[in-house]
Simulated assay, not measured.
Amino acid sequence: MTTLRTAAQDPFDLPLDRMFTYRLHMLGKLSDPSSQHAYVQETGLSLSDGRCLITIGSFEPLSVKDLARRSNLNKSQASRAAQALVEQGLVSKTESVADGRGVVLALTPAGRERCAAAHALVLRRNREIFGCLSTAELEQFSALLDRLIAHNVRA
């Protein structure tokens, strides 16, 4: 087992429970069960369907490939979620003019209403999860996340 080292030696060489990826994963695991329950109770959707609905509403029109990328799902998960949302009448699926084999996803009027409820839920969950941070800390954390994402997109 690795011992805690000073930042001058190697700031990444930490015990497992202090590693950044471990703690990010832990935060997700701590917040997902509450979020899943809230999605079902407040929107009638699963967590992944709710996230896909919000993603479509935020970036429509989207292909299934774009939905997968923007919602951090693999293409088969995004396809299943999109189909479930279509079957519930929340999303429309039309043929893509640009790609005859592809489809374009967009919210229906009912989907817009459900998306607004899901957005309110996400806003509340963000306040619950990150509410211990000050406005300045939230801005700094957001900037650091943007930087980490940009760094890893190129990696």
Rank of each mutant, 00 (worst) to 15 (best):
K29P: 00
R125I: 12
A118V: 14
Q88K: 15
G102C: 01
F20E: 08
F20N: 10
C115P: 00
Q88E: 11
L123V: 15
N152K: 14
A136T: 08
S92Y: 02
A110S: 04
C52Y: 00
R80M: 09
E137S: 11
I56H: 01
L14H: 04
S31T: 15
S35K: 08
E128H: 10
I129W: 10
I149H: 11
S96F: 07
N152W: 13
D13K: 07
R147E: 13
A84N: 12
E128T: 12
K93P: 04
D17K: 07
C52T: 08
L67T: 06
R127P: 00
P15D: 08
E113N: 04
Q36R: 14
A68N: 04
L53K: 01
R101S: 09
A110L: 05
Q88D: 11
T3S: 09
R5V: 11
L27Q: 15
S34I: 15
E87A: 10
H25F: 10
I56Y: 01
I149A: 14
A110D: 07
T43V: 14
M19R: 13
I54K: 02
L62D: 00
T135Q: 07
A81T: 03
R69Q: 11
I54L: 15
R154K: 13
S142D: 03
L30T: 13
M1T: 07
P11Q: 06
K93F: 02
T108D: 02
A38S: 14
S142C: 03
V103N: 06
V97T: 11
E42V: 07
E113Q: 08
R18A: 13
D146C: 08
P11D: 01
M26I: 11
S92F: 04
V122F: 10
R51P: 00
S76K: 11
V122Y: 10
R124Y: 06
R112Y: 03
N72Y: 11
D99E: 07
P61Y: 02
C115E: 10
A118C: 08
Q9I: 13
A98I: 10
G28W: 13
H25C: 10
L85S: 03
A117M: 12
V104F: 08
V104W: 06
A68K: 02
T6N: 07
A7G: 04
V153W: 10
K93A: 09
M1S: 12
S142G: 11
I56Q: 04
E42P: 05
E113Y: 01
S76H: 08
A117P: 00
P109Q: 01
Q140M: 10
Q140D: 06
L107T: 06
D146P: 00
V153A: 12
V103P: 01
V97I: 13
V91F: 01
H25E: 09
I56N: 04
L14K: 09
A120H: 14
E128S: 09
R147N: 10
T3Q: 11
S58T: 15
S48K: 12
S92L: 09
T2Y: 09
A7Y: 07
N72F: 14
H37G: 08
D49N: 12
Q140R: 12
L144R: 15
R127V: 07
F20D: 05
E139F: 02
A84D: 12
M26Y: 14
L45K: 03
L85M: 09
G89R: 05
A155K: 05
F141L: 14
L27R: 15
L107F: 02
E60T: 02
E137A: 12
V104R: 11
K75N: 07
N126S: 14
D146W: 04
L24V: 15
